[in-house]
Simulated scan of single mutants.
Amino acid sequence: MALQIAAKEAKRGHHVLAGDIKKAVDASREVTRKPHVTSLAQPRGDLAELIITSHPSTRLRDLVLPRALQDQIKHVIAEQRQRKRLLDSGFTPAHRLLLEGPPGTGKTMTASVLAHELSLPMFTVRLDALMSKYMGETASKLRQIFDQVDTRRGVYLFDEFDALGADRAGNDVGEARRILNSFLVFLEDADPSSLVVAATNHRTILDKALFRRMDLVLTYSRPDARQAASVIRGRLGSLAAKSALVKLGEHTEGLSHADLVKAAESAAKVSLMRGETTVDRDTLVQALVARRSASLG
């Protein structure tokens, strides 16, 4: 409630008062917060069906992405780590992110990395359940979620976000338009101590207003040959024979990060069941070809 009052005062131009209220809230949180510990208590009531709580262990160095994208993620982490300094100077750290790109290219993994690097729990919002079960009262459920965003610091992942964020102009369902409008209002006022992450495979159908509300839009793509080799190497570890990862470009082209991980796991299991201690190139290529056939048809 105090944060909502602060937000209203800020909109009225009373920035000093708003800043004092936020400082008081932060100070009260510091008194009760244990160092490096974040509560993982499961949501109760309706939220229990809408939010999945986890504590990811995926590290920043586990992400295999283009350098520019990695730098953007590092910058978000840096701003959150120094959020108090930024807020005290009147600047808001990046906390509203849109991740867009093909399936299996690292969007959900990025949310996990943000949670781990900031020692925060990750709350995955199940939009499918939100939209199908509570179509007539979704706005009120969204309010409950954003109330938690304001009171329990964490990384809130809205996966498959196109289910909620489709363009209002092309949506004939009045309730769906009202839901998106509510989301935009809640997002605008979301506490910057938490991160709200929306992930989608279909950027083109999203409402244009979403892009104006986001602090950062991160675009993901399928890995190139070098990145593909890094993904496979990271999954196989010591099981990869020295020659296994040489010139795999023609076999990895068009495959996502998730496809590459699955292929590496398949090759590893075949090799281990044969009693071998490493995965050779032929076995890995066969697994990649099979995965390509399954994924790309």
Rank of each mutant, 00 (worst) to 15 (best):
Met1Gly: 11
Gln4Glu: 14
Glu9Arg: 15
Arg12Tyr: 07
His15Tyr: 14
Leu17Trp: 11
Gly19Val: 06
Ser28Glu: 15
Glu30Met: 11
Glu30Pro: 02
Val31Pro: 01
Thr32Leu: 13
Lys34Ser: 13
Thr38Ser: 15
Ser39Gln: 07
Ala41Thr: 12
Arg44Met: 10
Glu49Trp: 06
Glu49Val: 02
Ser54Asp: 13
Ser54Pro: 02
His55Ala: 12
Pro56Ser: 10
Arg59Met: 14
Arg59Pro: 00
Arg61Ser: 14
Gln72Phe: 00
Gln72Glu: 15
Lys74Gly: 09
Lys74Pro: 00
Val76Phe: 02
Val76Ala: 02
Val76Ile: 13
Val76Thr: 05
Ile77Tyr: 01
Ile77Met: 01
Ile77Thr: 06
Ala78Cys: 02
Arg81Asn: 12
Gln82Met: 10
Arg85Glu: 14
Asp88Ala: 13
Ser89Ile: 03
Gly90Ile: 01
Phe91His: 12
Ala94Ile: 13
His95Asp: 08
Leu97Gly: 06
Leu98Ala: 07
Gly101Arg: 09
Pro103Ala: 10
Ser112Asp: 09
His116Gly: 05
Pro121Glu: 10
Thr124Phe: 00
Arg126Tyr: 03
Arg126Ser: 11
Leu127Gly: 00
Asp128Val: 03
Ser132Lys: 06
Lys133Phe: 00
Met135Val: 11
Gly136Ile: 01
Thr138Arg: 01
Leu142Phe: 04
Leu142Met: 13
Arg143Phe: 00
Gln144Thr: 02
Asp150Val: 00
Thr151Cys: 07
Arg153Asn: 03
Leu157Trp: 04
Phe161Cys: 01
Ala163His: 10
Leu164Ser: 05
Asp167His: 13
Asp167Leu: 08
Asn171Val: 14
Glu175Gly: 02
Ala176Gln: 14
Arg178Cys: 02
Leu180Val: 12
Val185Ala: 08
Leu187Met: 13
Asp189Thr: 10
Ser193Glu: 15
Leu195Thr: 05
Leu206His: 05
Phe211Ser: 08
Arg212Ala: 10
Asp215Val: 08
Asp215Ala: 11
Ser221Gly: 13
Ala225Phe: 06
Gln227Trp: 02
Ala228Met: 09
Ala229Arg: 13
Ser230Glu: 15
Ser230Cys: 09
Ser230Gly: 03
Ser230His: 14
Gly237Val: 07
Ala240Thr: 05
Lys247Ile: 01
Gly254Leu: 03
Leu255Pro: 02
Ser256Ile: 04
Ala263Asn: 04
Ala263Leu: 07
Ala264Ser: 14
Met273Gln: 12
Arg274Thr: 10
Gly275Met: 09
Glu276Leu: 13
Thr277Ser: 15
Asp280His: 08
Val285Arg: 08
Gln286Asp: 15
Val289Ala: 12
Ala290His: 12
Arg291Gly: 12
Ser295Gly: 02
